[in-house]
């Protein structure tokens, strides 16, 4: 473009946003289109069943708008207590296990054999859905909240250890360096050079996890791991939509409250 361009008549088109090569753009866009057509085509919808279900939808929305907290209040209460206690226990135990694993998985402070083991534990814990793990633990520990507690503790490890390890790897190395330069041992380095930097984040993550564990506790009951999910499942099986609506509203309210509370605690800590 060293030659002076003609002043008038030069065309301009916006360069493509994502894929620069014209050929690949066509290939990928048409591939996406073909996939969508196939995917939508393979949908089998029984419209009569859907139509018949509209009446139920109406009843369900009715149940949501006029929830019934009273009729099965003892079951709702028991489910809620199970869920909440499960959440608390699983979060506390989960954190207690996650912290050493998280430290062990951080590249900058753990020797490699420890790191491999810790990363492997994290990978296993992250690979499967809570539900899948709950199925296994229910088979092992029997029905009830204990299986749920074990499930949530186990999945907490995958979440917390990984993010903690990532945080430790991203700390300001010069601070750990300075601690090391004073002749500090490994524990002292962790205590003085690392802990102050990651502590606020660890607390924040723990509060997040408390949130998540409560939400998950509402689900794993569906496969028999106790909690409000079991109550909800029973209500749905009985077509008792008024109670189901009440339970859903309670879950939403509690999640909102937990989120609001934990964001306040986070602000207060940092």
């Amino acid at each position: 473009m060293s030659a002076t361009p003609p002043v008038a008549g030069r065309r301009w088109r916006r360069p493509p946003l994502f894929i620069q090569s014209r050929l690949w753009r066509w290939v990928i866009y048409s591939g996406v289109l073909v996939y969508l057509v196939l995917a939508v085509g393979s949908l089998e919808v029984d419209w009569q069943r859907v139509y018949a279900g509209l009446e139920r939808a109406q009843r369900f929305i009715g149940g949501f708008l006029v929830p019934d907290f009273v009729t099965r209040s003892d079951q709702i209460w028991r489910g809620m207590v199970e869920s909440l206690t499960m959440t608390v226990c699983a979060t506390v135990v989960g954190i207690a296990i996650s912290v050493p694993i998280g430290i062990g998985a951080a590249r900058n402070i753990a020797p490699w054999p420890v790191r491999v083991v810790c990363r492997a534990i994290i990978a296993v814990s992250r690979a499967f859905q809570e539900i899948v793990i709950a199925i296994l633990f229910v088979a092992m520990f029997g029905f009830g909240p204990f299986a749920g507690f074990v499930t949530l503790s186990f999945t907490t490890i995958g979440f917390l250890s990984k993010l903690l390890a990532d945080d430790i790897e991203e700390i300001d190395e010069s601070q750990a360096e300075a601690t090391r330069a004073t002749g500090a041992g490994w524990w002292q380095i962790v205590n003085y050079g690392v802990q102050p930097q990651v502590m606020p984040r660890l607390i924040g993550l723990s509060l997040y996890r408390l949130d998540i564990n409560f939400r998950e506790s509402a689900v794993i009951g569906i496969v028999g791991a106790g909690g409000i999910g079991a109550t909800l499942n029973t209500a749905m099986e009985r077509y008792d939509y008024d109670t189901a609506g009440a339970i859903l509203l309670l879950i939403i309210l509690l999640v909102m409250a937990a989120e609001y509370g934990s964001s306040h605690i986070r602000k207060w800590i940092q």
């Binding site: 069943r49 509402a218 689900v219 569906i222 859903l248």
Partner: peptide, 25 residues
């Protein structure tokens, strides 16, 4: 946003299967 986030997709599925019948819809 908060309502959608509070309720796990499995619970949404539980409700929707009751309403729409089983299936991927």
């Amino acid at each position: 946003i908060v309502a959608s986030r509070s309720i796990n997709s499995l619970i949404w599925a539980l409700l929707l299967v009751a309403i729409l019948g089983p299936g991927i819809l």
